[in-house]
Amino acid sequence: MLASSAPRVVDIPHARLMTFSELRRSNYEESEIAAALRARHIVRVRHGVYASAAFWWTLKPWDRDVWKVRAHHLSSRSELIYTHVSAARLWGMDVWNATNDIHVAQRTRHGDNSAGVVRHKLMIPEEQVATQDGFRLTSKDRTVVDCAKLLPHELAVVITDSALHRGASRQGVSRILEEQAGYANISKARRVLAAANQLSESAGETRLRLKVMKWGFPPPTLQYEIDTAIGRHRADLAWPELMLILEFDGETKYNGTAPTDSVLLEERKRETALMECGWTFVRIRWPQLDHEASLRNRILRAYNNAVYTHGRPPAA
């Protein structure tokens, strides 16, 4: 008796999604697809949409959220516009602490009713809709407005900082807010825009700045440039008159991953060069942002020491 042949390994190209129908058209049997899932050679990103496991598990969690939106687009048969957090992710904006629900605006009553999809009944002018890689999504400016109206303040400012840093227009956002005057949560969205700063380069820098302002410190200068013996350094947040720097460790981003030895070595070199110039700094890593009392005390001690050394800053 001839032994039955082993099922083929399902091969999905790197950095690509494939639907169940595409796999079947590639001559994979249902049993082979099921076996590949059990063996963890492929992963189900969304119902009927798959990716190579070797690719999927190399992605950072926030990058996987982007690919989940792409998977939804592949699986959806409706005419959709991606909005809110989903649009922000597709634009490459920093999104922190938001759910991975898919946000869409539907034009018909018979749209997507699948799980994990938030449907918005929105009238979106065509000039506030963009097309990117086959996706229809809200423009950067409209995305900022929608997120600012929907999300808690800190989350919304993170997205707005990132959007402005990546080309959204403060004037364009203001214009949409004026057009929506009288709508729900417009005052909330205006406060988000007023708090935003396009010089912020990461979600961590934004969160740190918001905390510093909430605690009553004078507004720091962002991306302040300092010449040292080993070159020019840009401080994330600084009070130049006090020669005090708050440095957020971008290597940790959202998940608190420990920096590498090479990163730590470069940090020490920069810190030594800055100290030789008379600067004091407080280095802050991602997990410390959630321990407000201890973080505030660290910054307050450094600030008071700098005031004692250099004198009080001039009144604003």
Rank of each mutant, 00 (worst) to 15 (best):
A302W: 10
A238H: 09
N100L: 07
L150E: 12
E127T: 06
F55M: 12
V10H: 07
N197K: 12
V145S: 06
D63Y: 08
A39R: 15
R107T: 01
I186A: 03
Y224P: 01
S4T: 14
W67S: 04
N305R: 09
R209T: 00
R38C: 12
R25G: 03
S162P: 00
I176M: 07
P13S: 12
E225I: 04
A39T: 13
Y82K: 03
I230G: 11
S139F: 08
R190I: 08
N304I: 04
G92E: 04
A316E: 15
E292P: 00
P125T: 11
V10G: 02
S174T: 13
R142L: 06
T252F: 01
T138P: 08
I284E: 12
F135A: 05
S200I: 02
E126V: 08
R109T: 09
I33R: 11
W96N: 03
L137W: 07
N100D: 15
Y183R: 15
W67C: 00
H103F: 02
K269V: 03
A88Q: 13
T138C: 11
H153S: 04
E247G: 00
H110F: 11
C277F: 04
L80M: 14
V192G: 02
H47M: 03
A194E: 13
R136P: 02
A3Q: 12
Q132S: 06
A39H: 10
K188P: 07
T260A: 15
V212A: 11
H120F: 07
H120V: 02
L246H: 00
V69P: 01
V192N: 14
D290F: 14
L264M: 14
K211M: 13
A53I: 05
N100F: 07
A306K: 01
L37R: 12
K60P: 01
R283K: 15
V66F: 07
I102E: 00
L264K: 13
